Amino acid sequence: MSPPKTPFHPFSVLLLAASLLSIPSTFAQTLNPSCAPGGNFDLSNFSLQLPIGQPGSPTTISPDKLAGCTGFQDKDHFFTNPDDGSLQMNVPGDTSTGCVTTKNSKHCRTELREQNPSSWNPNAPTNRLSANLTVVSAGGSTCIGQIHIDDAISHKPVAELFYDDKGHITVGMEQTREGGNEKTFDIGDVPLNQTFSYEIRYEGNVFSVVLNGGKPVEVTTFQLNAPKSYFKVGNYLQGKTPSTVRFFGIEVTHG
């Protein structure tokens, strides 16, 4: 299955890249499997949250510490895959494994959080998160990308893109800023260990998801009134067993 070609935008921030064989041209560049992720990819606009640390306060790595070929990596959770150069994110399982969650969540994660901008206006004409990835194991179910409401407004997401061990992809949409009333919508199916692409859009106060370059699936039933938001991308485990996600490309576009 061939992923779509992502159009270049002057405000694009290129985060990750991968081989010409499976990745759109906007992502394509040679990766050095011997480098930490920061040596291959520009992580200057993202912080990293790991499933380790103190209860209620997971370890967070700042963008400056991620930078460079000798920058931060964690052999258990966040590292460059030595075989294909992808950015591999692992989660060991649920809290029974000893992994650490935030105080507002019961789930462990290895996840990048957009920092610059720290939040943006959903009424703007362009707000997009694009990714190419392979889910090796979903641990039951994991969130591979999300839009989160600005922390000063709410601790709830706008939307979470879920992938389960059957390869079923859904999006969970909160209906209010208070949360607790999420509705789930089907997006499509991609088998485990198959590379695919997605694009999450929240622009003109309309939310949509594009899978493998297909027709955007719009979800407009929620009543959030366009709160300031930010993107997150990674492996935010919803299940109980270990999960592994390998990213070949991630691109954030605002404008």
Rank of each mutant, 00 (worst) to 15 (best):
G255N: 10
K75W: 00
I23M: 14
P3F: 00
Q146N: 03
C99W: 09
F41M: 07
K156G: 03
M1P: 11
G53H: 13
C69N: 04
R109K: 11
R128F: 04
G204Q: 09
G179I: 04
R109I: 08
V219I: 00
N123I: 07
R128E: 15
F231W: 14
K156F: 05
Q238T: 09
G38C: 08
N212P: 09
G234L: 11
I147S: 07
T30S: 09
H148G: 01
I200S: 01
S130W: 05
L133M: 15
D150W: 00
I149D: 08
S229V: 06
D84L: 12
P10C: 07
V210L: 00
P10V: 13
T220N: 01
A138I: 13
S119G: 07
Y236R: 04
T170C: 02
E199A: 00
S141A: 09
P33R: 15
K183I: 02
G188K: 04
L133R: 09
G234Q: 04
T176S: 06
I61T: 15
P63Q: 14
S154H: 05
K228L: 08
E182F: 01
E199I: 04
G179C: 06
Y198W: 06
G139Q: 00
V100L: 11
P10I: 08
N132T: 14
V13E: 12
L50K: 14
P82V: 12
T6Y: 13
T142V: 06
P92R: 14
G180Q: 06
N212S: 08
L48R: 13
Q88F: 07
G68A: 05
A124K: 09
V210D: 11
P7K: 13
S208H: 10
E178M: 15
P24E: 14
T142A: 08
F231Y: 13
V252C: 05
T241V: 10
Q73K: 09
I52C: 12
N32M: 00
L14C: 06
P125S: 01
L50W: 09
H148Y: 11
F248I: 10
T101C: 10
K240D: 14
N205Q: 14
N104L: 04
G213V: 06
V206K: 11
P63N: 14
I250R: 05
I153V: 10
P4R: 06
Q49Y: 03
K156A: 03
N132H: 13
C35T: 03
P122H: 05
F248C: 01
N193T: 08
L192F: 03
K183W: 03
I187Q: 03
F185W: 04
F222P: 00
G85Y: 13
N40L: 02
H107S: 15
L133A: 06
E160G: 01
V158L: 00
M1W: 11
S57A: 12
L192P: 11
T253I: 01
A124I: 01
T97M: 12
Q175V: 06
S130P: 03
T95S: 08
T176P: 05
L192C: 06
S105F: 02
F247H: 09
G213K: 07
N81H: 15
F231A: 04
F46S: 10
N205T: 08
D186C: 00
A18W: 04
V210H: 01
F11C: 14
H168K: 11
N45R: 12
L133N: 15
Q175T: 09
P3G: 06
P4M: 15
P24L: 12
